[in-house]
């Protein structure tokens, strides 16, 4: 039985049987298995979305620029969260659902330091350090389960509850925030429009870009990065070669925790620190990571921009339906690519 087009035949017998009974569906499935076709389709959907966003926004003037900037700011925050999350998954196969809790811990720790020293940078650095420390403690507990992924994930869920309750006990339930550093206070004029935009929000975008750059250098230009990439590919082989994998894993946990801590300090400055923020940020980074493909750093980068922009667009134009729109986008991506934009079936690509 020959397929009606020259495309690669579908893998399963069942699919082939289905294909024979339904040529349109067969053609669609053949299309969805070609990487170029998929990319083209993805780009087309993205362009359509951008076009729709732009045309809809132009009617109300400068709002489109605002949507764009707000989207990029959220994207920056999401990337800081999702990059650590996805790195930990890629290497340790642990889905750290306590990542939102660690974000909150980092933010609140930074708040305490800022109240004592009045120095945002020191506060952020110490908050990141604290979050990294908590993260590595969590890793030590997770090691007790010896790689039983589902129980590890449940353990991190338990940690989420404990962290949230301890944060409530230590810092109370009243929403609060950090003051931005003096050189990032106030707003700047946006060129070509009458809008003012807070400097700090732009700095968050810069921070995320910087984090991306540092991560790239670390992963592709250092020995540790080489070990991390090798560990993602084949952890068993790396350990056979005499590398102490737990040490590499531990450093990735510290790195991910520190990134979440920085995100907590940044988010705590331009959003707020409150009960429930941990869940909101966890949901956002989950959507980013799932949409981008688990374990893929590039996927996390691309997805954080898409999720950030779609979310900002939805919040501006359909505030009531904003969550629905973001979620619909996730379902659409998963329908096209079950393993996310840049994820493989079993094989994670950094």
């Amino acid at each position: 039985m020959h397929p009606p087009t020259g495309a690669a035949p579908p893998a399963g017998r069942r699919e082939r049987a289905e294909a024979a009974s339904d040529p349109l569906r067969y053609r669609l499935s053949a299309l969805s298995q070609r990487p170029e076709a998929r990319r083209l389709f993805g780009a087309a959907v993205a362009l359509l979305l951008v076009y729709y966003a732009a045309s809809k926004s132009l009617e109300i003037g400068d709002r489109s620029l605002l949507v764009l900037l707000n989207g990029l700011t959220s994207a920056g925050l999401y990337f800081l969260m999702a990059s650590g999350f996805t790195l930990v998954f890629g290497l340790a196969r642990v889905t750290n659902l306590a990542h939102g809790g660690i974000y909150l811990l980092g933010g609140y720790a930074a708040l305490s330091v800022q109240r004592a020293t009045d120095n945002w940078l020191a506060a952020t650095a110490l908050g990141a350090l604290f979050a990294g420390g908590v993260s590595v403690v969590l890793y030590q507990v997770l090691r007790l389960l010896r790689g039983d992924g589902l129980r590890e994930t449940m353990l991190t869920l338990g940690a989420t509850i404990v962290i949230a309750d301890q944060v409530l006990a230590k810092w109370g339930g009243i929403p609060t925030d950090l003051d931005p550093p003096s050189f990032l206070r106030g707003s700047i004029d946006l060129p070509g429009s009458a809008l003012l935009y807070p400097k700090f929000r732009l700095a968050v975008v810069a921070l995320a870009l910087l984090a991306g750059l540092v991560l790239w250098v670390l992963l592709y230009r250092t020995r540790l990065g080489m070990l991390i990439r090798a560990g993602v590919d084949d952890p068993d082989m790396v350990s056979i070669l005499g590398i102490r994998v737990p040490l590499v894993l531990g450093s990735v946990f510290v790195l991910a925790g520190a990134l979440a801590g920085i995100a907590g300090a940044a988010g705590g400055t331009y959003l707020s620190l409150a009960q429930g923020e941990d869940n909101r940020i966890l949901l956002a980074s989950l959507i980013v990571v799932i949409a981008g493909g688990l374990g893929s750093l590039r996927g996390a980068g691309a997805a954080s921009v898409i999720v950030g922009l779609v979310e900002a667009f939805a919040q501006t134009h359909h505030p009531v339906l904003s969550v629905l729109i973001t979620f619909g986008m996730l379902i659409a991506i998963l329908a096209l690519r079950p393993h996310g934009l840049m994820g493989g079936a079993d094989h994670a690509r950094l």
Binding site: L150, T153, I287, P319, L324, L330
Partner: peptide
């Protein structure tokens, strides 16, 4: 089409989404 950890994350997203939907809509 999901299983294991991926399913866990996807269903968590669905669960939290339902909460936000109830809160927002």
């Amino acid at each position: 089409r999901s299983s294991d950890l991926y399913l866990m994350m996807l269903t968590l997203a669905i669960g939290v989404f339902t909460f936000f939907f109830a809160q927002q809509y």
